[in-house]
Nucleic acid binder design. Structure first.
Lengths: 212, 212
DNA sequence: TGTTTATAACTGACCAGTCAGTCAGTAACA
DNA sequence: TGTTACTGACTGACTGGTCAGTTATAAACA
């Protein structure tokens, strides 16, 4: 932006810059159709320079996924660990709010979207995401559920159904908004959306009152 | 397989055969990385022959999506229309069972998976799926919800949150099983999974009993 | 016979990855 | 201070291979 000299010496920042550019291009065109030259241009470099930092196009994809997986896993674990023991219901509401905020933001959900689209063709990526993100999320949700059951806030529902009930709507939200351009009819704000969903799920998780 | 003559005349069956083959190859490699010659071989033809039936690779993708969208929309509409007026709860359970059975079966969910992965790059496909599948599903769910509210079985929750709460877990199930190879810990059977989820959601949708 | 259905060889465009060379900066010396 | 020698980040043209779509030709029918 500011009159930067053409040759800037900052090799330590380059890998991240290239990964940012790669995410943008992969996200727009998909891995196979993305051209390395486009990534290079987006990063303000020539194609050759990109190969000084990454051995191949696939290495960029791997780097990208690793980065994103790390962030996601950290976020999920932190959030649940923070709120779970004290107040499972509030922690659950917070988790859904965070999930919908993230999944509704095209900048944030770009990486998960990419993983969704490409993981089928890259077993290594699928395995990495599974162990670094999904397994972590499952453990966190399991802990949250257990805490809720112990405190009497939740019924002892199946953990895998609980995981699908919690994470699924977030994925649906992502797909509807960022892939299909589906605007919600009523609830524009992701936080309201999250609260409406929390309202359904928390009610569903409550121990059944023996009425009716 | 069986000693079929090399030149068989059955042009009326060809388009569907080619679409089947295209789905298999697109699903395995993604649209961009799929080779038309692979599709042709999978269909037992030469590449040139494929171009007698489809003008381009993209035309195959379009045909595929159109076919799949038609089936999905029909299924969703029928199921809800059948059960809604009489017994919304039972209809909802049936819908979830059907959803999980479909989303858990790699043969059936191949087309939706493909659409998920590619719709971002093909606005026409996204628009088609949206109008032919998503809008139809939304209407159907809205009707089911309204019927449930009227009969007193459901609370009057937000329709879009309801849509995400219902469809989302199905998508999550698809992703976990077919993309990430995530085996459920407890519930192997999709029908059990659907019932566990219905248990959570139906309880959540019930009018709140003023206790606690 | 003419028409339909198919093939296989071909073309032209495209692109991942390479590499010989360029240039900005820097440091040591005079 | 100006000069020389050096480094390593960067460039862009090139190569080798791939693949969508075309076409000349032929077999199978009617």
């Amino acid at each position: 932006m500011t009159s930067a000299p053409k040759r800037r010496r900052r090799p330590d920042a380059r890998p991240d810059e290239i990964l940012d550019a790669a995410l943008a291009v992969f996200s727009a065109k998909g891995f196979a159709a993305a051209r390395v030259e486009d990534i290079a241009r987006e990063a303000g470099l020539s194609k050759g320079a990109v190969y000084l930092y990454f051995a191949s196009k696939e290495a960029m994809l791997n780097g990208l996924v690793e980065q994103s997986a790390g962030e996601l896993a950290k976020g999920a674990e932190q959030l649940v660990a923070l709120g779970a023991p004290q107040d499972p219901e509030t922690a659950f509401r917070g988790l859904l709010r965070m999930l919908f905020a993230a999944m509704g933001d095209p900048d944030i959900n770009a990486a998960p979207r990419l993983v969704f689209a490409e993981a089928g063709r890259f077993p290594e990526i699928a395995a990495h995401y599974r162990s670094q993100v999904l397994d972590v999320a499952r453990r966190a949700l399991r802990a949250l559920l257990a805490a809720g059951v112990e405190s009497g806030a939740f019924r002892d529902v199946d953990a895998d159904a609980f995981m699908r009930a919690t994470g699924g709507p977030g994925i649906a939200h992502m797909a509807l908004t960022s892939i299909f351009g589906f605007p919600p009819d009523q609830l524009t704000d992701p936080a309201e959306m999250a609260d409406a969903l929390a309202d359904i799920l928390l009610n569903g998780l409550k121990p059944r009152v023996p009425a009716l």
